[in-house]
């Protein structure tokens, strides 16, 4: 019997007022698969990603993550799902007033109690700092553990956001245009890092971007979103290009 897909979206329709953004979008992703989502601006890529962790109400259709229907989740159950879905976005969305390790460990908030979250801000335990350190090590920022987030560069913000997603120990990693504001060299490094990490930890990666060539180079499968649905699909070279070399590329140039 074939394995059930980790993510299964069926005929998803999303409307903002009179505006139909997704109009019957469907996609399947298996474990550890790396998928690039291409499409013009305004085609609904971000909406599709946000529907996967329950930030967008669906008009009809279904979204299943690890056999759990997302569209009807509320409260605690929705939080439990979100804690297993990591998000990295274009603006990185870090809290600039906090220190680097505090931003990284925000990824653990889904499994921590309110009380533990408060205690951590005031008095982090050695084991928690160690967890932050090892996540930062994976993105080569170990030396910035106690840095003020506001003083770090854009590229470093990006990697802290990735480390935060890693701490979530996710089943699924959603990257919303992670390279939109980066120069070509940094773009390649970032994609290599994301794809390498996804491979290392067997995480399914879904990444929106605008560059077909990069999509082809780094991802297993490339989907094109047009008019609110997936209209084209092809395989990329991600698997052949060597998953290990992707990580090596990121490490070597960082």
């Amino acid at each position: 019997m074939p394995e059930r897909p980790l993510l299964e979206i069926c005929d998803l329709v999303v409307r903002y007022g009179p505006h139909t953004v997704l109009n019957g979008a469907s996609l399947k992703a298996s474990r550890a698969e790396r998928i690039a989502l291409l499409g013009p601006s305004g085609s609904g890529k971000t909406t599709l990603l946000r529907s996967i962790n329950g930030f967008v109400p669906a008009a009809s259709g279904s979204v299943r993550v690890d056999d759990v229907e997302v569209t009807s989740l509320r409260g605690q159950h929705l939080r439990a799902l979100r804690s297993r879905v990591g998000v990295v976005s274009q603006r990185h969305d870090l809290i600039e007033m906090l220190l680097a390790y505090q931003n990284v460990m925000a990824g653990a908030l889904g499994r921590w109690s309110n009380w533990r979250a408060l205690r951590f801000l005031l008095y982090p335990r050695a084991s928690e700092l160690e967890e932050a350190r090892s996540a930062l090590r994976r993105v080569d920022l170990e030396h910035k553990l106690r840095a003020r987030t506001a003083r770090l560069s854009g590229g470093e913000h990006q990697r802290i956001a990735i480390a935060r997603a890693l701490v979530q120990n996710p089943l699924l990693l959603l990257a919303d245009e992670p390279i939109a504001s980066l120069d070509p060299e940094l773009s390649e490094q970032t994609l290599a890092l994301l794809c390498g990490l996804a491979h290392e930890s067997g995480v399914t990666l879904i990444c929106t971007l605008h560059q077909p060539l990069l999509a082809e180079r780094f991802f297993d499968r490339i989907l094109e979103l047009r008019n609110g649905r997936i209209e084209a699909e092809r395989n990329g070279n991600g698997s052949r290009a060597g998953r290990e070399s992707g990580l090596a590329l990121a490490r070597g140039q960082a």
């Binding site: 962790n53 930030f55 929705l78 939080r79 439990a80 799902l81 979100r82 804690s83 297993r84 879905v85 998000v87 976005s89 603006r91 969305d93 870090l94 809290i95 906090l98 505090q102 925000a106 990824g107 653990a108 908030l109 889904g110 499994r111 921590w112 109690s113 309110n114 979250a117 408060l118 801000l121 956001a161 935060r164 979530q168």
Partner: peptide, 19 residues
């Protein structure tokens, strides 16, 4: 946007306020 990012980790309400 940063608030959404913290919500997306599945953080409970008081942790969301604090972080």
């Amino acid at each position: 946007a940063p608030v959404d990012a913290i919500t997306a980790t599945g953080a409970p309400p008081i942790a969301r306020a604090a972080f």
